[in-house]
Design a protein around this nucleic acid. Sequence first.
DNA 1: TGTATTTAATTGATATATCAAATACTTTTA
DNA 2: TAAAAGTATTTGATATATCAATTAAATACA
Lengths: 148, 148
Amino acid sequence: MKIENPSQVVFYSIERAIKEYRKFAQKKISETVEGITVDQGLILLFLNDHPELSQKEIAKLLFKDNASMTRMIDLMVKKEYLMRSTHKDRRRHTIDITSKGKRILEKLPPVILKNRNTALEGITSQELNQLEQILNKIINNCVINQSK
Amino acid sequence: MKIENPSQVVFYSIERAIKEYRKFAQKKISETVEGITVDQGLILLFLNDHPELSQKEIAKLLFKDNASMTRMIDLMVKKEYLMRSTHKDRRRHTIDITSKGKRILEKLPPVILKNRNTALEGITSQELNQLEQILNKIINNCVINQSK
DNA sequence: TGTATTTAATTGATATATCAAATACTTTTA
DNA sequence: TAAAAGTATTTGATATATCAATTAAATACA
């Protein structure tokens, strides 16, 4: 049984698209903001909009593992973008953005918006909807069949 | 400046689609073949079809870094799926599939084909073409603007 | 031919991914 | 209310990602 050439398989395109976008976005972010990864930037943005988020909730938003999130936030605390403080549910922490983190937040949104616009240049909103729909079908197929 | 909710941004869908597919595919592979990751399986398949591939070429096919590929193949050698032997270009190695690797290869293709079909269930070939086209636009936008 | 430039692979350092197990709390329930 | 079950986070072990630097060999070229 013969497996198709990768270039003929849509999963390679999906993987490549997200990897090229991440590489591109990281490069542009690094040109503007020192010492921040794409994911760290997203963590700051989410926390800024929703300060009550738990590590677990942030992990889910970014499709990360809880253990990874612990270590990412450890690092961001070490780099002084974030601080952990006590939460009334003492299993959790409240995660606060430091002033250093807030300074990053001022520079970040325009870069991210520009990156997204650049990456989506020449793509109609109709195409974007199609893309979303098809991807959602794939996601559903995978999620449903995983539990089987 | 406000950054959109993740669910409204197509890049989250792309990321989620590939991650859910990988999780699903890994689960199905693990049920059939012991001790093999999706990427390790793909390395075996590529080498089987194109035994002359260098580590660098395999890395490119799978969108990996050369350093990662060195370590992945190190591990596959340690687990006895692969062997390195001398190549006429002595900077390289020839990478041979062991008999243990070949036994994996007998079981792998049907699982992978079934995974892909399951994940793409209910998606027309027209939609697949659209998906490819739109993703290629994104890829091009990122690649072109990276060098700028 | 000898030196400079490329090239394939490796290594080191650090970060992230993944799974399992452990901790420290909270909530349920008998 | 005490024990059981559930939850958020952390930790350990191993693999992979990423970038820079190194090594060893091939190629270019003066």
